[in-house]
Amino acid sequence: MNEPGSPAAIGERSPMDLRPTQTMATPNANGDDKAPKRIALRVDHISAWYGNKLAVSDITLDVDAHSVTALIGPSGCGKSTLLRCMNRMHEVTPRGRVEGKVILEGEDIYGAGTDPTRVRQRIGMVFQKPNPFPTMSIEENVAAGLRFMSITSKSEIADRVENSLKAAALWDEVKNDLKKPGIALSGGQQQRLCIARAIAVEPEVVLMDEPCSALDPLATLKVEDLMRTLAVKYTIVIVTHNMQQAARVSDRTAFMLAGEGGFGQLIEYRPTDEIFTNPSDKRTEDYITGRFG
């Protein structure tokens, strides 16, 4: 029998899988999930440092497959750092260091011999500011990641570009301008282009770090709508400063807070409707109602 939490035990949620930790009550431990859901990603006792400075401490949480999970909390609580630990982006930060496991479909992405590039293909990321490659056309931007997958067939590339742009709800707006530069698009379109680029390599998980913070309200609503659509096929984790956005788009919400030690901890992780109507921790309540932060 596998040890609870060991890579081989991941995949189906069972009582054995769920270990309460100091900073998290797991979904079933709360009794708030009626049907067991498949876990796409398990963050398992993750701590992260910038040099000697501890940024996030001992965080454990399960991300349900085909759902949107939101990370919220005040600036400096470590939510973006945690997100970047989920696809080994933190380690490319100068003096960035990670301890713990992140288990994707049974495999620890920090395991020995794991290829970080392959990890980032399976767990894609969309950043705060739209960042299309400035010298590339719309089409080339979407296809940029495919070359790392050794996809060279022109027809397959064209199919993937079209399907990704359709999935990112951008196809109808750009289908006649595929050769135009990606940076010629509006901010909202550029962000959807980046989402198309992220999903062109068919990841299992898409991480989004404040993907709407540079967008106007209409573009924001389009991207939010897109997140819900994408969650049918992908698992999405989003960091957002906009609590209403977390309330609108996510299924589960994790609230993080930096304590006296200055490092981020997970305070509460529950279904989003419960977090925003009846949070169980007073610190969550005080933050989301604007009584501090």
Binding site: M243, Q244, A247, F276, T277, N278, P279, T284, E285, I288, T289
Partner: peptide
């Protein structure tokens, strides 16, 4: 104000 939690209740 889009209240939440105890304010919404």
């Amino acid at each position: 104000q889009q209240p939440v939690a105890v304010d919404l209740r």
